[in-house]
């Protein structure tokens, strides 16, 4: 475990040793800020319009109108940003020959994979942590409900971690970073879109596909509910991807 943390720490620093970390954080905050601004302005317009209708005004809720759309749009930004963060995790090491250093050091392949995963996750946590600033503004200007924000945040962490795990797997399969980024984007998007077809197929298959969808599991989190089904779903996606990555790394030796 100590080795995994050593690798995680190096990964996190490596993001800021190259322009990648700064560019991804810069673009991320710009987009998230834009989204937040848009959502907030939209909400305040609605409030103004319904100012002379006390019934409507009572129905308006910051959590429903600002926090949920904010998280919903941040997911899209994750979809674009996380493949860019994870693409280098293994692909770059293979290209630069540093894979030889890691794979001939007395650490297990699982420690290496977990370390890499945590390295990518630490960067996602860094981005998410700083973007908590936006909901914090809401407390300053309004009176939102805290629990749904926290559970929504937990949902984002689990979603981000799943994206990182998928990206890590894609990165272990190639030594080309562009291919790694595109294939992880493709895999994530596929698991995202799967829920679109659930209505068109027979109910049983529909349920299965809906269970597999990365996004359907987020709804409860955003409503303020932590359900073990969804937590287990994300943890199994992560566990499965890490396991596959470990097998991919292991198999390199035998080729």
């Amino acid at each position: 475990m100590k080795n995994a943390l050593t690798i995680m720490w190096r990964e996190f620093r490596a993001y800021f040793g190259s322009p990648l970390g700064y560019i991804v954080s810069g673009v991320y905050f710009f987009l998230v800020g834009l989204v937040f601004y848009r959502v907030l302005i939209g909400f305040s317009n609605i409030c103004l319009q319904s100012a002379n209708n006390p019934y409507y005004l009572q129905q308006l809720n910051v959590n429903e109108w600002v926090v949920r759309p904010f998280f919903g749009l941040t997911r899209f930004i994750f979809l674009l940003m996380i493949p860019a963060l994870t693409m280098r995790l293994f692909a770059e090491e293979k290209k630069n020959g540093t894979a030889e250093l890691l794979l001939t050091a007395p650490i297990s392949h699982m420690e290496l994979v977990v370390g890499k995963f945590l390295g990518g996750l630490s960067m996602v946590m860094f981005l998410l942590g700083l973007s908590l600033l936006f909901p914090a503004i809401l407390f300053w200007v309004g009176n939102p409900d805290l629990p749904p924000i926290l559970t929504g945040f937990l949902g984002m962490v689990l979603l981000g971690a799943s994206f990182v795990a998928i990206g890590l797997l894609a990165s272990s399969l190639t030594d080309n970073q562009v291919i790694a980024a595109l294939s992880s984007f493709g895999m994530i998007f596929l698991l995202w879109l799967i829920s679109w077809v659930t209505g068109q197929v027979n109910p049983l298959l529909g349920n299965v596909l809906s269970y597999l969808s990365l996004i359907d599991h987020l709804e409860d989190f955003e409503k303020g509910v932590i359900s073990s089904t969804h937590v287990i779903y994300y943890l199994s996606v992560i566990g499965f991807c890490l396991f596959l990555t470990q097998r991919v790394i292991e198999s390199k030796r035998w080729r």
């Binding site: 620093r13 490596a14 040793g17 190259s18 630069n96 020959g97 540093t98 030889e100 250093l101 001939t104």
Partner: peptide, 15 residues
């Protein structure tokens, strides 16, 4: 038990 120097030294350029 080993120390290994591959043909291309495995170095992280940004460190």
């Amino acid at each position: 038990q080993i120390g290994y120097l591959p043909e291309n030294p495995p170095l992280y350029r940004e460190m």
